[in-house]
Simulated assay, not measured.
Amino acid sequence: MTSHSEFGLETSGLDVAKTFANQIQGRNVVITGVSPNGIGEGTAIAFASQKPKTLILASRTRSKVEDVASNIHSKYPDVDVRIVIVDMSSQESVHQAASEISSMISTLDILINNAGVVIQDRRWTPEKIELQFATNHVCPFLFTNLLMPLLLKAAKESDTPGATRIVTLSSAGHRLSPIRFHDYNFEGHPIPPEEEHIKDLPPAFVKARDGYPGFIAYGHSKTANILFALYLQEHLRDMGIMSYTLHPGGVSTDMSRNLDEEGAEAINRTSKYWKTPDQGSSTTLVAALDPALNNPVGLFLDNCQFKEPAAHATNPDAARRLWALSEELVGAKFTLGSKL
């Protein structure tokens, strides 16, 4: 259990940060996917409110992340805010960003993998990987592993095992599909029954354009987030690092900007309550800060509390296979430990 059972649907990220202020003060934090009026901005403002040592905002569009930094400076002028430009659909960009961050700080206490995308039309990355899988999982996988030396050093120097955290945002959308190991790029290769998406979905969720079912591909990538967090948790907890993942809830942002009218309406029907970006950051803050989570008491959070994800997202064999596939796609091997 988390330490505050009263936290839930309408909880403010600012309130969570205030509750766990001692877990923020004097620590280094990196947040990806930061733009105005989004979950990333809500998360960044909440962290900034409690005097972190260094707050690094990593995002693709300079003007947008600069707007967030300016907003933070106006509210909390004493916070050391840094900006790093990173395109989470480009492995080259991820390497550059990780190198830049490593030159700014010597330890990293909290990494928030917040960046994500949802689309309905097939797009490719420079590495010829389907865009949603690359942006939502493959590049965060690479980014996290490139920053691992900073995280391990922070954990080694910490007096509190488990206070060093990796938090990766997933979605309730993970329930749509397991990982398609036999067709991760959604190119139409045959897949076994256990890799099929769930049945009886609304037509908008299975709609395919030129053979590309965008929402199913999104669900596949969000399942990857949970399996990634599972692998990290199992391998890093003995080294003093905890890993969690979460559904932020229905949050009023511009993430649906790439969807057509039918797709946007389908998303609108998935939630009865739409959170503000501040409320949408609250579960991230609990996952990153709550001392009750210094030991592995769960994996996936929703509305600031633990919730059981779909069975296909908690399979250790799938987590191992995904790690191996991810290494193959980034052309590197990352050895963390001996579990799983």
Rank of each mutant, 00 (worst) to 15 (best):
E10F: 12
G13A: 10
Q25L: 13
V29T: 07
I31W: 04
V34C: 13
P36N: 09
P36T: 07
N37T: 12
I39T: 05
G40H: 05
G42S: 11
T43H: 08
A44Y: 09
T54E: 13
T54G: 00
T54V: 15
R62A: 13
N71H: 14
H73E: 14
D80G: 07
I83Y: 02
V84C: 14
D87W: 09
S89H: 08
S93R: 04
S93G: 07
A97N: 00
S99K: 14
S99F: 08
S102C: 12
I105A: 13
A115V: 14
G116W: 01
V117P: 03
I119N: 02
Q120P: 02
R123D: 09
T125A: 06
E127Q: 15
I129C: 06
C139N: 14
L142Y: 09
L151F: 06
A154L: 08
E157A: 15
R165P: 04
V167C: 11
T168L: 04
T168H: 12
L169I: 12
A172H: 03
G173H: 10
G173E: 01
P178V: 05
I179E: 03
R180Q: 15
D200M: 09
F205I: 04
F205M: 13
K207Q: 14
R209V: 14
D210C: 02
F215N: 09
A217N: 08
Y218K: 08
Y218H: 11
G219H: 07
T223F: 04
A224V: 04
N225E: 05
I226N: 01
L227K: 07
L227H: 09
Y231T: 01
L232F: 09
Q233M: 12
Q233L: 00
R237P: 00
D238M: 08
I241V: 15
M242H: 02
L246D: 01
H247V: 00
G249Y: 06
D254N: 15
L259T: 10
E262S: 15
A264I: 07
I267N: 08
I267G: 00
K272E: 11
W274Q: 12
P277S: 02
T284L: 09
A287Y: 03
N294A: 10
N295M: 09
G298Q: 01
K307F: 02
P309T: 01
P309I: 01
T314Y: 00
N315Y: 01
N315W: 03
S326G: 10
S326N: 09
S326W: 02
A332M: 13
K333Y: 03
K333Q: 14
F334V: 02
S338M: 12
